[in-house]
Design a protein around this nucleic acid. Structure first.
Lengths: 239, 239
DNA sequence: CGGTGACTTGACCTCTGTCAAGAGAAGTGG
DNA sequence: CCACTTCTCTTGACAGAGGTCAAGTCACCG
């Protein structure tokens, strides 16, 4: 189950067998989470962090007027709330968007790792830096791209991230979010989200049915999205 | 000059005298940067990171059609490109928005720190996590708030961050960005940026002249912005 | 005194939100 | 097995937020 975390880390650097063993030791309880259930609540001060072993999850914030903005999507292998280890108080919530399997790690054990395992520490740090890089790319998409390009960008990103952990089949991948949830990702209304999706469909760039997205024309889609995967740091080198 | 970095770190946790000494040792060259000059270029692989000692700087990305989106603003005391230490390749550029004084630190020295100084390592990690938290707040503002609220939010955030390093006077602070640069922050056109600023001025919430912003009605401004400073993690506790 | 950059204002148009309604699929209980 | 609810997706009509184009003002500077 935890192999997915190793697989995820190995997109950036080599993880030694000794490090794997160290990691296996600190992995704690495993449990299932239902769709729409909070994995971590906004405002809480968790004493553990969570690895997503399977399923899709999102970070989100609610505004005073009750709308929701999803600030990040997480795929299997992601360390969804490593942030709380040092931020202490969760400034946002994390919710399951599909049935999820999660594994927790005590913050006390992470603290020990920062003393005994500098390389693993740097890899975890790197994972949070990549989260930040994704945030920046989303900010660019929200500020300077059309909604159509923004959606294309997110689809490209998801495909590359899912492929990196072996969760694509050919040019398609399982993607269980509803259009309403995607609207909270793009910061759109549900109605316009629907129209934006249809625009990509009409042009033969993607198909999206039965919770599955298939990319029908990668080059065109990436061109529309102005997609450059550099920010994902999927390059194996000493970190 | 480097005291500003200590001051910045001390908003989150206590920094011992021994740690200060350790930090002073690895601080490298100091130099001035002119407005509009790149501090770090997009696509480069720097071998050092940069602390902003004075002035304002921004992270930004350019899109294919030549527009610019600023993804973060940096104030004195910020470690503006700690990210490159582990990400290796800069996926974005960093530009000076005013005359800046910067201090560089070799990545080799940071690497040593991750072995010999776990607490300092965690503090640096934390700084990048706060950057991420700010990104998330910006995503929420771009996706789910009106442009007026977005601007109010950024002004509140800047005030709190600048106050934390002692750079406010009463309710006002020096802020040298042009309206065109602010448009690249909010993802707006210059014309609408101007109108948004005027809307806050007309309502007597802020004054903004001579590169100085004064907050005339904090409570109202924070209410419009839906501003909750939790995400900045300005709380001194063991990290 | 002309040039430059930043700010301001008006007119117009497009993108996106809101409201409203309907279709289709899936699950639920009698 | 069928009526009924519920959820998601879809479409149309209209209104408002924000973009684009164009022009003008103002301060500063060589």
């Amino acid at each position: 189950m935890i192999d997915i975390l190793f697989r995820s880390l190995e997109n950036h650097d080599i993880v030694s067998e000794a490090e794997r063993a160290q990691l296996r030791m600190i992995l704690d309880k495993e449990r299932n989470v239902e769709p729409d259930e909070d994995i971590v609540k906004q405002g809480s001060r968790p004493l553990f962090s969570t690895v997503l072993a399977s399923g899709f999850a999102a970070r989100y914030k609610l505004t005073v007027d009750g709308t929701r903005q999803i600030t990040a999507l997480h795929v299997p292998g992601d360390f969804v709330d490593l942030h709380a280890f040092l931020l202490k108080t969760m400034d946002h919530g994390i919710v399951a968007l599909s049935p999820c399997r999660i594994i927790t790690v005590d913050h006390a054990d992470l603290l020990t790792l920062t003393h005994s395992a500098p390389h693993l520490t740097r890899l975890f740090w790197l994972k949070t830096l990549v989260d930040g890089a994704v945030h920046r790319e989303w900010i660019v998409a929200m500020g300077r791209r059309s909604k159509r390009a923004h959606l294309a960008h997110i689809i490209c990103e998801l495909f590359v991230r899912l492929r990196a952990v072996g969760l694509t089949e050919g040019r398609s991948f399982y993607f269980p979010l509803s259009q309403g949830e995607m609207a909270d990702v793009l910061g759109l209304s549900l109605v316009h989200m629907n129209r934006t999706i249809q625009s990509l469909r009409r042009d033969g760039l993607i198909s999206w049915t039965n919770q599955t997205i298939e990319i029908l024309a990668w080059d065109e889609l990436a061109a529309i999205a102005d997609f450059d995967p550099t920010y994902l740091s999927f390059q194996v080198e000493p970190r």
